[in-house]
Design a protein around this nucleic acid. Structure first.
Lengths: 90, 90
DNA sequence: GAGATATTTATACAATCGTCTAAATATGTC
DNA sequence: GACATATTTAGACGATTGTATAAATATCTC
């Protein structure tokens, strides 16, 4: 279980980005406009999420489209289930 | 879902502490001796885990015994399952 | 109460983090 | 190529974090 994964999840903005991507794939700009901070700051967060392999990207002309990497989330769930008794009734 | 929870999980030493507590409850000293850092540093980590409600404590004479708060872990699992498609086959 | 053991709290400091502005890169349109 | 739009990268800066040492608190034994 990679350290970068948990560090990436530690920031609320990044968790909110992940939730936005749950609804549908979005471009960097569509994501950034949901937050009060500068575009460059959101771009930084996207970079962290990508480095942790929580999201993947695809260029579409001028745009870059982000999508969730659901495989990694399943690994996170498995991590908690196997180690910390999530098997009871979660 | 509290922010302190994810911040607490972001540090590898703290995750290791949680894994140790999976095996059995332990005193602060028993936990601290598993790590190369100063006791006070481990104590700090224990405080962070406790603030996030990931562990609970009970005094036993001179000792303070730590145990996992499994309820919170079930909340974490639920968080990921409901939001990020962990329902598939994790 | 004095001394030993267990643990936390206080303080300091370097390292990491989140945000900003400005500059750079990439693509599309004319 | 020149310009507009989309996005990232670079550099700076204050805030937070992880660790250390020293001091404080709590309990136990004598």
């Amino acid at each position: 279980m990679d350290d970068s994964l948990f560090r990436a999840l530690a920031d609320p903005t990044r968790r909110r980005i992940l939730e936005l991507l749950t609804e549908k794939d979005r471009t960097a700009g569509e994501i950034a406009e949901q937050f009060p901070m500068a575009f460059a700051s959101v771009s930084h967060h996207l970079g962290v999420l990508k480095a942790a392999d929580l999201v993947a990207t695809e260029r579409e002309g001028q745009f870059i489209r982000y999508r969730l990497n659901t495989t990694v989330f399943q690994e996170v769930v498995r991590y908690f289930m196997t180690r910390f008794g999530g098997e009871s009734n979660a």
